[in-house]
Design a protein around this nucleic acid. Structure first.
Lengths: 191, 191
DNA sequence: ACCTGAACACCGTTCAAGT
DNA sequence: ACCTGAACACCGTTCAAGT
């Protein structure tokens, strides 16, 4: 990449970051280009879709969350605490980018989305923590990585809705509790 | 209202109904007008916003759900069964109108939304069933009408996301179970 | 190589002009 | 009273033309 292009790209990412956190995930691409004093077509040449822009912007966050899952899996703390703590981190992170949850929910099933790989990695990281807690007998045995991803998405979505957000913390506890309720009540309920 | 206007209105509602179920809640108002062979401005004069159109269209559904809550509160079936059954009905209904959940979540806090009153009524209906189950000691005591509304919204939203929908039924059971887990585990968890 | 203005097909809002 | 075309300010996509 040419030096001027690289500089342009970095500048676009910086501007996009503030625009997205301020206005939410739905800011118009035109707006971002305007803020960066750049033609719309230039922005789109660097990042052909909103997903591509987000992928570049959120890569760090995704990597951090994945790394954190790895650390938590190594520690000696109880597996169920590690799991809940990680889920909490995931949900908390999304509040920074209002509306990102819907894009992630779409990306996990869309091979062509620029966010697809990151979402799949995230799901796998969660699945490992979940399996570990299940092996210890402290998480419901009838959940898998897809379920956990969906539960995280639901909680993140909740925080995105201004009218429902006040209940987000409380319902986080309720659902975390449900995940950890153990296999006993799960068995009686699924059959 | 003049007879021709009434006829126009009914026709618009019929067309909008099929358009919304087919394409989801985000169909363009222009599209609906086109389908109805009517100017866009005419559609907007009858229904100035998307919410207004939905309010007219979904009034019947809202009324049915509210009425059903009333019936369930009267029956001799266990209060917890009534509650879960009603929540299931609510969630199932929203699958017919893809995307309606986000609008409802916004409307419950927006006095000016045409959907506000219907959402408030729905929340109250759910709260009554919840209170009844709590009085019987079969639902978590630390939930209120807002929590229940949010939980229903989360489950409805889940069904709206194609990638997550396959888990919707299973997670419905998980969350229904969490609502009914009783006050015991709730107490240990909230303090 | 990289950038950009402009044309395009869309959207919802608004209103003056028609019947 | 009720309807409507048209102008408006937006959006993301696409591409020929510039440096």
């Amino acid at each position: 990449m040419r030096a001027d292009a690289r500089k342009n790209r970095d500048h676009l990412l910086a501007v996009a970051g503030t625009a997205l956190t301020e206005q939410g995930i739905d800011v118009s691409m035109r707006d971002i280009a305007r803020r960066a004093d750049v033609g719309l077509a230039t922005l789109l040449r660097h990042f052909p879709t909103r997903e591509a822009l987000l992928e570049a912007l959120l890569r760090t966050n995704f990597d951090e969350l994945t790394a954190r899952a790895g650390e938590l899996a190594e520690t000696s703390s109880p597996p169920e605490d590690a799991l809940v703590s990680w889920v909490r981190d995931c949900v908390a992170w999304t509040t920074e980018y209002r509306g990102v949850t819907v894009l992630m929910a779409a990306a996990i099933a869309d091979i062509d989305s620029a966010l697809h790989a990151s979402c799949v990695t995230l799901r796998a990281a969660g699945a490992r923590l979940l399996t570990r807690a299940q092996a210890a007998g402290t998480a419901r045995s009838d959940l898998d990585g897809d379920d956990l991803f969906a539960l995280v998405a639901m909680l993140a979505w909740l925080g995105d809705q201004p009218a429902l957000a006040p209940r987000a913390d409380h319902l986080f506890d309720v659902i975390a509790n449900a995940i950890l309720t153990g296999t006993g009540s799960a068995d009686t309920e699924t059959r």
